[in-house]
Each structure stands twice: as structure tokens, then as C-alpha cells.
Amino acid sequence: MIALAPAPAAAIDDAIDDALSRIRGRADALGEGFSELGGAIARAAAGGKRFRPALVAASFEAFGGTVADAPGLYSVAAAFELLHTAFVVHDDVIDHDTVRRGSPNVAGEFRLRAQSRGADASGAALLGDAAAILAGDLLLHEACRLAALADVGTAHRAALLTLIDDAVFVSAAGELADVENAVSADYADSEALLAAAHDKTAVYSFTAPLSAGAVLADASPAAIAALSDAGRHLGLAFQLADDLIGAFGTPDQAGRDSGGDLREAKRTPLIGLARETDAWSRVHEAISVAHTGPIAVREAQRMLDESGARARLVALVDESLGDARRAASDPALPPNVAELLTTIAAKIARRVP
């Protein structure tokens, strides 16, 4: 999502690889099972777009930072990738998913490990979930460790740890709200669903990494405040675009069959908006059978389209991106930062299916 020059991108990859190597080295000394967990963690963090650490570096560069003045930049950037991986691993446990990107995830690998040792289905699920929870815990620890030990000034370190603290708390609150919304007998209103969508993603994916780069570049408090405001709107737009992809995106966009969120009857802001229309009874009926196959999925997509909910959600994405662009025009932000933020907004707009 964010393109970096080859040298910074390689430096970020090296910092991530070094952290994963440390995890594997520590795990190898603690028994065969734990050694396998170290390998599973490394595989969970492999690949991906790595746009969160790219945001740290891009923000730092846009504010005129030089690596000579902040040699810990790439360690801090790597911390945000490990934080993301931790949330993904834990999210898979919450969603009972055992596959990611077409391969067994941490939980899936350890379910297979348990089965190979004669465990029944219940035992395999128990080991898989335990391994994934522990993997996420280790990744969270390593992310905080990277930030705590990064070669930065004392004041910078305190500010960075505050950003990570906020990212963890807000993301956890968003995840819990999302699950509560999913299991409640009554549907949450669209405002509550939008708040959960924001909290799950916006802070740890946009506000915190952008602000981390600014902190390391010695940006002013006014500039960081404006940047955080823009990041908040970008993060919401990104998550809402993700919800549209989950309902309407192509398999290439979604990384799975089209309409996955509809098959799983996820209570996203899209569904919250549909509930506010006169067509809700028909939409609800279509979604309730979407799990039966692609024809039912297409019918649910058609009903959501006709209800106007899809158009309303696209409008909310546009509104959030407009708010981000207005925040980017704050005079406290240097021109290069404003350009970075508008570039990100344009990339998010292109994600909308």
C-alpha cells in the first residue's frame, strides 16, 4: 500500500527478520514443541504488505528525519508489523479460523500436530488455540521489546511506548465490541458498528505508526495532533473499504471466495446500514441463506445493493477520506506530509469494490 525506496524497505525486512530469528532462537532452547511454535510464529509473520512499518518510515521521511539521528527507526517500524501479526493470530482464534492465505495458520499447524500424536478433535482444538494465543502473546511482547530497546532518545522512547499502549488498548476494545455485537440477540446500531470498526483498525494501523515516524523525526506537537486526526479518518475509511471487499470484493481482493462476510453473516457497518432501510427484511432473509452457496451470496449482494446500504457505505468511505484530506491541509503539517496523507487516501479510495 505504501511504496518505499528499496533501501528502507530492505532495512525494515531485516529488522523484522532479526526479531523473528530471536524468537526462534529462544524457542529452540525450550523444547521441541516450543521450537515448533517459534517456526509457526515466523511463518505467520512472513510475507504480507507490511504497510504499517512502511507508514512509520514514510512519515519519518516526510517530516525530514534522517536515520543517522534516529538509528532505531527500523526497529520501531518492525514493532508495528509484529503488533499487527499478534492481532491477526489472536483474531484467528476468536474467529475459529485455522487457515490463512490458503495455508494452516498457527492454530491450524498445532491442530495438525496434535492429530499426528493421536489427539481427538477436542484435544487438537485445545492445542491449536493454546499455541495461537501463546504465539500472539510472544509477538506482543516482542513488539514492545523492540520499541523499548530501540536506539532512540529517552523522550522518544516514552512517546513511542505511549503510542503502542494506546494502540493495544483501543484495538482490544474494538475487538471485544465486535464480538459482543456478533453474539448479541439484538443487532447493534450502525453507530456502534462504526465505532468498533474504527477501534479495531484505525489506531494501530494508521494513527500510531504515522505518529511514531513523526515522533522520531522530532515533529511538533501540533503536527502530530493533525497527523493523528488524519490517521483516524484514514483508518476508518480503510476498515470500511475492507468491509465492502468482504461483501462484494473479487476473490483476488478478498483473498478468498467472494462474499465471505455474507456467508459468515458478519455484523459489519454495511449490515448496520441495511437495517436502517425499508428493505431490511428482504436483506436479512437473503443473508440468512448466503452460507448455502454462491447463488445465495449473489442474491444477498443484490439485495444489499438495492437497499442502498452499499452506496451509503461507499459514501461514508468518501466522507472519511475527505476528512483525512482536510486534516492533511493543516498548516502545521509540512507539504511532504500532506502529500503522503493524500497519497494514502487515494490508495484507500482505489480499494473500494
Rank of each mutant, 00 (worst) to 15 (best):
S122A: 15
L240M: 06
A274T: 05
T250Q: 11
R351E: 13
V283D: 00
G136Y: 01
S281N: 15
F51R: 00
P269D: 05
Y204L: 12
L333D: 00
D305H: 07
A130I: 10
A70V: 02
A237F: 00
A315P: 05
V93M: 01
A223W: 08
Q253G: 03
Y187R: 15
G174A: 09
V106N: 04
Q301S: 02
A222K: 10
R256A: 11
N336P: 14
R50C: 12
P104G: 05
F63C: 08
T250K: 11
T207W: 01
D189V: 14
P53F: 08
K200A: 03
E299Y: 10
T66K: 15
A86W: 08
A346K: 12
S211L: 04
A195R: 15
S35P: 14
L194F: 13
L139E: 07
A223S: 01
L216G: 00
S122R: 14
A195I: 13
G123A: 08
A241K: 00
F63Y: 01
V168E: 10
A68S: 06
R298W: 13
S281A: 15
P334L: 08
G174R: 14
R24F: 07
A286R: 02
N105E: 02
D129H: 03
A296S: 06
A225K: 13
A10Q: 09
R312E: 11
A247E: 02
L140G: 10
A274G: 05
A10M: 10
A5S: 10
W280R: 04
P53A: 05
A19S: 05
A274E: 07
D318S: 11
A345F: 11
D166W: 09
V88S: 12
L194E: 04
R100T: 03
A7L: 13
V283Y: 02
A40N: 06
G153C: 05
H156P: 09
A130S: 09
S228F: 03
S281H: 14
V56M: 04
A15Y: 05
S320G: 14
L139W: 01
S329P: 15
T342Y: 09
L240I: 07
H156C: 07
M1C: 12
H90K: 02
G118C: 07
V179H: 06
A219H: 05
V106M: 02
D257P: 14
L176P: 09
A150M: 05
D97S: 04
R275G: 08
A332D: 00
V297G: 03
A70M: 00
R325Y: 08
D151S: 13
D95L: 06
R111I: 08
E81R: 01
P209R: 02
L273M: 15
S184F: 13
A44K: 01
P8S: 07
V289E: 02
D261I: 12
I41P: 06
Q239W: 03
T162V: 10
M303K: 08
